[in-house]
């Protein structure tokens, strides 16, 4: 059973890289029986078990956000920096605090995030990416989401997060990362291996086409991700609770089978 679970999770991890939760789950269901055949075990029981597992996992995923939100923020993907006394929306009922949201210029998730927070009556300020260092001296806690948690405890997060984490380190502000377990990956990344690790979005977001002739002469990069080394992360919070980034390897071995690391 455990192994199957691992396979499922492994599968899930693979698919999670392709993104899109609902669709991937669907793929998961269709893809799994093939995998199971490779293990050549009793098929009849397995199928029902597997389906049970999958539904369980599905509900787990569905509730995971809630779970995390019980501890922390509702927003996992956005590039937020939050000077909170405690966790976000749930906490807002009990405590009052201020939130500073970094706008993250190339995607502007920050704008959405801020609008959402303001709707739930939290005092919110939006700052441009450049002002992170300036504001950090007044921040008590940084809460960020991430795209992936790497095997060494580092993050593959929205670009700009590295600078946020560095600034937090400079001012000794704790950095809390919110991530679901499915964001864990057994991949290791060396510090500067940007090419394989990163993706670039359309540069039109940062240098609009209206700038005309200038575009011919200039190279414009608009990377999506940033590598954040584990020493800049204070705490990882998943739906199961908080962990330090150095513990990621252990969670990995719990979640995935070592044989499945390479697919």
């Amino acid at each position: 059973m455990r192994r199957i679970l691992k396979i499922i999770r492994e599968e899930y991890e693979v698919v999670s890289k392709r993104r899109g939760d609902d669709q991937s789950l669907h793929q998961l269901v269709t893809a799994n029986p093939d995998d199971v055949l490779d293990y050549s075990e009793k098929l009849l029981n397995l199928r029902t078990d597997l389906l049970d597992q999958l539904t369980e996992y599905e509900t787990e995923l569905e509730t995971s956000i809630e779970n995390i939100a019980n501890q922390a923020s509702e927003h996992i993907h956005t590039n937020e920096i939050i000077l909170t006394v405690e966790f976000l929306k749930c906490a807002a009922k009990k405590r009052t605090f201020q939130v500073i949201v970094v706008e993250s210029s190339q995607v502007y998730y920050g704008h959405l995030m801020a609008a959402n927070l303001a709707k739930s009556n939290i005092e919110t300020s939006v700052i441009p990416d450049a002002a992170v260092f300036a504001m950090m001296s007044r921040v008590n806690k940084v809460i960020i989401g991430t795209n992936t948690v790497l095997a060494n405890g580092g993050l593959r997060a929205l670009s700009g997060v590295h600078a946020v984490a560095l600034a937090a380190k400079h001012y000794s502000v704790p950095v809390v990362v919110l991530a679901h377990m499915y964001k864990l990956t057994p991949i290791h990344v060396a510090y500067h291996e940007q090419v394989n690790f990163n993706e670039c979005a359309s540069p039109a977001n940062i240098l609009p086409y209206s700038t005309g002739a200038l575009l011919n002469k200039v190279k414009v990069y608009n990377p999506i991700f940033d590598y954040v080394p584990p020493e800049l992360v204070t705490l990882l919070i998943s739906h199961q609770g908080g962990n330090s980034p150095s513990y990621v390897y252990r969670m990995l071995s719990e979640l995935y089978h070592p044989e499945d690391y390479e697919i």
Binding site: S105, D129, H162, L207, V218, N222
Partner: peptide, 28 residues
């Protein structure tokens, strides 16, 4: 920075333009 870019490209200096969040990408 766009103004800077304009001034530099005018004389023919090879330029790359990024936003501040991509610093980690190029800094190495």
């Amino acid at each position: 920075g766009r103004e800077m870019l304009r001034r530099l490209t005018q004389v023919g200096i090879e330029c790359t333009y990024i936003f501040i969040n991509a610093l980690g990408y190029v800094m190495s």
